[in-house]
Design a binder for these strands. Structure first.
Lengths: 188, 188
DNA sequence: GTAGTCATGTAAGACGTTACATGATTCT
DNA sequence: AGAATCATGTAACGTCTTACATGACTAC
């Protein structure tokens, strides 16, 4: 349940509503959960029952009640505690890699076609992340330290997409030189 | 449900039991689901009810019955169909990146410590993947084409871990030069 | 007037994980 | 004798996704 920690972290940056959190999380490639992630609301309710967050209703009388959440000291403690946790390796669920793994079933030429489509999609993703990285510089409601972290994190994603693109180019080049079945001999 | 396609792919390579699939999947960094992934059995039962796989009992009378599964033509069709699906971007659930994103809450020095621990873990993962890549060369029950794909896929993972390690080194270096709060100024 | 955004929430499902249960065989 | 591995399966759980429901306000 990383969404719990993501919420704690965002609320530490500034108190905000569930809707604000939802927008931030869905537009962030790093906090990449569903764009319509209503788990946020249930998690907020749970966090409140555990005393990690408190909420005030701004503009009373409105519908639905606009609840602004903020961290309690207990919530801050949990966040700090999690931040000190030993880091874990990234989980890379690369569905394409599984497709690739069984691709010798495909007719010749089809793999090349798919690799090209993948390369195109990666290029777009890299452009998007670099735009995000640039945009994070102009976020006014963050401290310089927070902006630095955000920019470095966005760069991390762009780096990985670039790495993937390089890998595709390498494989694609190999496919041009020789068909799949003879690829291995070069390595031996 | 990528485990479904992974099973179809593995059964295409060779008929085998659920236990065999489980070992292969749990030891593969690419097909990285739980090491004790009993979802495989339920998926096999489902695939059978849909006519994608068939099973024979080898060594009848044993307990539990050793069921060897193989693909039907319908299963092969589904696999081929999925292989031609337009490729999707990798889902990188990098929990560490979320930790990093909120790390300005941490006392100075603690972030550097965590980055170092992360770098160490990445180095180990890279060594492991390169060992896996080497090992895939000597798998006897695969065709040369399949071995080539497997080796390239293993290399893909090693590439990503290396990319992550480079990123950590970059960040770490920046931390030495200047504290977090002044990091951004260099970029502006 | 209808589409979109603001704003909160419930409920059902998909997917993956963990724990448990059973019992045979093989290794130490 | 006890532990590990072989081998299959069920059940509960945790996490994330999708769909639905409500209703106000704003923009075209």
């Amino acid at each position: 349940m990383t969404i719990r920690q993501a919420i704690l972290g965002l609320l530490f940056q500034q108190p905000q509503t569930g809707y604000d959190l939802k927008k931030t999380i869905s537009s962030s490639s790093i906090l990449h959960w569903s764009g319509n992630n209503n788990q946020i609301y249930t998690t907020l309710i749970q966090l409140k029952s555990e005393g990690c967050v408190e909420s005030d209703i701004s503009e009373p009388g409105g519908y639905p009640a606009r609840k602004v959440y903020r961290l309690t000291s207990s919530g801050k403690a949990e966040l700090l505690n999690w931040l000190s946790t030993p880091p874990a390796l990234p989980e890379m669920k690369n569905h394409f890699l599984i497709q690739f793994l069984f691709a010798d079933t495909l007719p010749a030429g089809k793999l090349a076609e798919i690799l090209d489509a993948y390369a195109e999609e990666l290029s777009q993703a890299i452009a998007f992340e670099q735009e995000q990285s640039r945009r994070s510089l102009s976020e006014t409601n963050l401290t310089p330290g927070q902006r630095a972290l955000q920019q470095l994190a966005a760069q991390n994603l762009a780096d990985h997409y670039t790495c993937e693109l390089n890998w595709v180019a390498k494989v694609r080049k190999g496919l041009n030189v020789s068909p799949l079945t003879t690829l291995l001999k070069e390595e031996e």
